[in-house]
Design a protein around this nucleic acid. Structure first.
Length: 372
RNA sequence: GGACGGGUGGCGGAGCGGCCAAUCGCACCAGACUGUAAAUCUGGCGGACUGAGUCCUACGUGGGUUCAAAUCCUACCCCGUCCA
């Protein structure tokens, strides 16, 4: 039985709402996952995430493997117990770190040599070991080991890398077959990742063969790595139809609110992005009127909330002037408040998308959002 | 009263004859950030002209030496330390 059920489809677009069943609850899609790389959505507590309605966040196998390591997490009863989170957790494999920490790794056909960014120690990761690790710490959704290809990439490199990702996907899947035989594993999900850079034919081949291998869900990887926005959208538009209608689809690392509307319209169900938290810590607030930099002097005496249309605890309780002051004073609270608001903004955007898909008003709502 | 030391851009603080509109830090002003090595990174920051650039005003104050002074001399005004 499939873990994903479509509930409503939008008449004029490919957008849909659905439910993804995990061992830690049913996730309503489309959904945005805040990023908790180290087991923490930076500056925010689990209680805060819960009260905002976060059902799922994304954590990272590479980082958690290096620190605190499998032993600690297992002795805490798994990642959920360790971080005190009873809802869904998706773990990324470390494929993104092949890109972001490119200087510290060597890719071989059988796996990846990594030099720890923390202490320089050497580690060797294989598709099997990475899948096994994610399963062992109790991740609800396990991502295959892939290579996130930088932009721009030559066709040769993109093709070679895409094929390697496919080989690894098969090995992850085979490893996962063993895991599924165990009690915890029977309730875990494994997602495959489509690569191929900006070359649509490579993307199509990657999608077809990943689907052939067979996964519980499919991700578009290698997006938002510096390519023009139009390329991102083109890939989403052209490749999503190559993924099974009844499977859940995940656009990794995407994105801004505008991008989410666009991708949902094209049938994407899951997103994650560091933007609301990272940019929040750097002083940027996402509002219904666009982004603002709270550090800018125009907010120094502004007693209005970040966003007049927002009902989050931050907008209900704090002024721009105060948050401006917190940032200029180097107070941690400033970063927390913007992170809270920004994540809330993303969640509310997803709410609006789900509601409007169900109502049949998706395109009107999208237009309304983009006009602001 | 005497002996030293010192007064530099919003602040701290380099420079001690030309490469100085003046290192650097802070503050300030902007920009960036998309599966997080990020509470990070970039740029700007005397004035005027849109600008590579050109000109103007500037290193306590006044006078002087020099082709050339923030840098040397001199008088004065402040500040600090010590001695009486």
């Amino acid at each position: 039985m499939s873990a994903f059920t479509i509930e409503k489809k939008c008449a004029g677009t490919k957008a849909r709402t659905g439910v993804l069943k995990t061992a830690h609850g049913n996730i309503k899609t489309p959904v945005f996952m805040p990023v908790a790389t180290q087991g923490s959505v930076k500056t925010m507590s689990g209680e805060e995430l819960r009260s905002m309605g976060v059902d799922l966040f994304v954590s990272n196998a590479y980082h958690l493997y290096l620190r605190p390591g499998e032993d600690v997490i297992r002795s805490a009863g798994g990642l959920h117990g360790f971080v005190s989170w009873d809802r869904g957790i998706l773990t990324d494999s470390g494929g993104f770190q092949l890109y972001s920490l490119a200087g510290l790794r060597k890719i071989k056909s059988d796996g990846v040599h990594f030099q720890s960014h923390i202490d320089g120690s050497s580690h060797f990761f294989t598709p099997e070991s990475v899948t096994g690790f994610q399963a062992a710490i109790g991740s609800d959704i396990i991502m295959c080991l892939d290579e996130c290809v930088p932009y721009p990439a030559t066709r040769e490199y993109a093709e070679e890398s895409m094929k390697l990702t496919l080989e690894w996907a098969l090995r992850c899947r085979n490893k996962f077959e063993e895991i599924k035989g165990q009690e915890q594993g029977s309730r875990q999900l494994l997602f495959g990742i489509v690569q191929g850079s900006t070359y649509l034919d490579l993307r199509r081949e990657s999608a077809a063969r990943t689907v052939d291998t067979g996964f519980d869900g499919y991700a578009l990887g290698g997006l938002s790595v510096g390519e023009p926005r139009e390329n991102t959208f083109e890939i989403v538009r052209e490749i999503t139809p190559a993924l099974p209608e009844n499977s859940v689809r995940y656009a990794m690392g995407v994105g801004t609110p505008e991008e989410l509307w666009e991708c949902v319209e094209n049938g994407i169900d899951i997103f994650d992005c560091v933007l609301p938290t990272r940019n929040g810590r750097n002083g940027q607030a996402i509002t219904s009127q666009g982004k603002i930099n709270i550090k800018n002097s125009e907010h120094k005496k502004d007693m209005s909330p970040l966003d007049d249309d927002c009902v989050c605890t931050v907008c209900k309780g704090y002024s721009r002037a105060y948050i401006h002051h917190l940032f200029h004073s180097g107070e941690i609270l400033g970063m927390r408040l913007l992170s809270l608001h920004n994540v809330y903004f993303m969640l509310k955007s997803m709410d609006a998308m789900r509601r409007s898909i169900a109502d049949g008003t998706f395109l009107q709502e999208k237009k309304k959002f983009l006009n602001k």
